[in-house]
Design a protein around this nucleic acid. Structure first.
Lengths: 205, 205
DNA sequence: CGCAGACTGTACCCACGGTACAGTTTTTTC
DNA sequence: GAAAAAACTGTACCGTGGGTACAGTCTGCG
């Protein structure tokens, strides 16, 4: 029973890496089982078909992302009274975390799934959609706390601003991959941070 | 000869749409030729293999993007003396153009290729890379003109700021696809525009 | 021992990428 | 309007991969 979980995780690790670098449709079950040193029957024992693999991968990915975001923005919020400064510190940590990834961010499953939408059933697409809406909710809460204290210098929709966090990360991952430079992502996060500062922090000069 | 071009374009149109919604690896030549009502031999008359199709698609896409960007930011720059206001108008037009796409932005080939990197040869990957670097150059020039007149309120690397344009668009396309709402992209462009205003425009309040 | 979980082995079907190459129709050019 | 070039069709073939079906096996645990 523990053995089963371990094999399942291994299959998922291999599949995730392959999907992020080749896309879902180009990732063959054959290559996954070859790398995992398991038979095809073994694979189908764990996942009844490719779509179930996709769903399991996405759910696992989202859970781990949530944990990371909780760690970054939940923890810092607990440690600081001021929501704006807490958020700015969270962004700084986020940027550093991305910079520390040795070979860059491996890619976001949510983005891959968007560019592979026709391959998945409604179920998986809906999970993907809800995940992004949850990110929006998460950051919207933060910005509403901020805006209650700091009047923004420009009239800006807070939902859009919340989306801009995910937007920056998704864009940054693509850009980093495109130019093959992991630093682009972390720098884009810092630029977004600079925007938040300009928008909410009272002028000093 | 003219007939040949037309068929070639038709094949490319079909292939591009399929690739943007399913990924390169999941797009079969069979389905392309079925939709184009041509035989497999006919397809291979135009493209010696799938990678050549990929290259042709990318080059065509980049050329059309360049034309659009020239139209948006080149034209407006000619019509306005001030580089900052010209750019802000260009962004506004860009945002409106994205909002007017009836079923949203179909997707960026550059991004798809990033999430399918392992499927392409060095040649195609290098074209992709250079394309993004060219975008960086294009917007860097604009920002250097701006910064010569308007001192930025925060110290910001102009290359990063130039990347932020592409970053916003790439991220916005992913986000729009994810939540199935075309407006997200155009709103993100307006948010970026708000950042540019805050960064360069002298305070009025 | 018995049983469930975690597989292996074998055999099979169909779709697809890709190759090869000969033949045919359409279009352009002189 | 004939020759030449372009734009295809038709056929046959190979290997790989997704997926199904199902019987058999090994292994740890109560």
């Amino acid at each position: 029973m523990r053995k089963g979980r371990a094999t399942r995780e291994k299959l998922m690790d291999i599949a995730e890496a392959a999907i992020l670098s080749k896309g879902f449709g180009a990732t063959s079950i054959e290559e996954i089982i070859a790398e995992a040193e398991i038979t095809k029957s073994g694979f189908f024992y764990h996942f009844k078909d490719k779509n179930e693999l996709a769903r399991a991968l996405l759910l696992r990915y989202l859970a781990s992302e949530e944990q990371i975001l909780d760690g970054l923005f939940g923890r810092t919020r607990e440690l600081h009274d001021d929501p704006l400064h807490a958020f700015l510190i969270g962004l700084k940590l986020f940027s550093e975390m991305m910079a520390d990834l040795p070979s860059g961010h491996p890619g976001c499953l949510v983005a891959t799934y968007c560019y592979n939408e026709r391959l998945f059933d409604r179920d998986v697409r809906e999970i993907n959609r809800q995940a992004v809406l949850q990110w929006r909710q998460r950051f919207l809460q933060i910005f509403e706390e901020i805006v209650a204290i700091y009047p923004p210098r420009e009239e800006v929709d807070m939902e859009d601003l919340a989306d801009m966090v995910s937007n920056t990360v998704e864009g940054g991952i693509v850009m980093s991959k495109a130019v093959n430079d992991p630093k682009v992502l972390s720098r884009q996060i810092l630029l977004f941070r600079s925007y938040v500062k300009l928008l909410f922090l009272p002028t000093q000069n």
